[in-house]
Simulated scan of single mutants.
Amino acid sequence: MRNVGFRVPFVSIFLIAFFILIFSRIAVAEVEDLLAQINRKPAEERHKLLIENAKKEGTLTFYAGTNFRDTQEIVAGFNKHYPFIKVAFSTPGGPGVLNKVLTEHRAGAYQADVVALTGGYVPELIGKGILAKYKSPMVPFLRKGFVDADGFWPGVYAIAYTMIYNSQRVSPQEAPRRYEELLNPRWKGNMIMDVEAHDLFAGLIDLWGQDKATVFLRKLAVEQKVRFSRQSHTFMTQLVASGEHDLIVDGYMHNAVAFKERGAPIDYVVMSPTILRPPSIIAITSRSPHPHAAALFVDYHLSKEASEIMVSKQGRWAPRKDVKWTVEPEADLHVVSALEWGRKLRQLVELFNKSVGQ
Score class of each variant (00 low, 15 high):
residue 194 D to E: 10
residue 65 G to C: 03
residue 346 R to W: 12
residue 143 R to P: 07
residue 238 Q to V: 11
residue 339 L to R: 07
residue 285 T to C: 04
residue 121 Y to V: 00
residue 60 L to G: 03
residue 273 P to W: 02
residue 35 L to D: 01
residue 249 V to H: 06
residue 89 F to T: 04
residue 121 Y to G: 05
residue 100 K to I: 15
residue 123 P to F: 04
residue 250 D to Q: 02
residue 288 S to E: 00
residue 208 W to E: 05
residue 156 V to C: 08
residue 255 N to E: 14
residue 260 K to M: 00
residue 278 P to I: 00
residue 62 F to T: 01
residue 225 K to C: 09
residue 239 L to M: 14
residue 150 D to S: 13
residue 4 V to M: 12
residue 38 I to R: 01
residue 330 E to A: 14
residue 249 V to G: 01
residue 77 G to K: 05
residue 70 D to W: 13
residue 68 F to C: 11
residue 64 A to D: 11
residue 93 G to Y: 00
residue 229 S to V: 07
residue 62 F to L: 03
residue 158 A to D: 12
residue 53 N to I: 04
residue 73 E to W: 14
residue 198 H to P: 09
residue 62 F to K: 01
residue 343 R to K: 15
residue 308 E to P: 08
residue 173 Q to T: 13
residue 82 Y to S: 02
residue 223 E to L: 08
residue 127 G to E: 01
residue 70 D to N: 14
residue 177 R to P: 10
residue 41 K to I: 10
residue 15 L to Q: 09
residue 123 P to M: 03
residue 57 E to T: 00
residue 281 I to L: 13
residue 159 I to S: 15
residue 355 S to F: 01
residue 129 G to L: 03
residue 316 R to C: 08
residue 9 P to N: 00
residue 311 V to D: 04
residue 330 E to K: 15
residue 105 H to L: 09
residue 83 P to V: 06
residue 162 T to D: 07
residue 205 I to T: 10
residue 315 G to T: 03
residue 344 K to E: 12
residue 109 A to I: 13
residue 271 M to H: 12
residue 70 D to Q: 15
residue 42 P to N: 01
residue 314 Q to E: 13
residue 276 L to W: 11
residue 164 I to W: 09
residue 257 V to A: 10
residue 164 I to S: 08
residue 8 V to R: 04
residue 222 V to H: 11
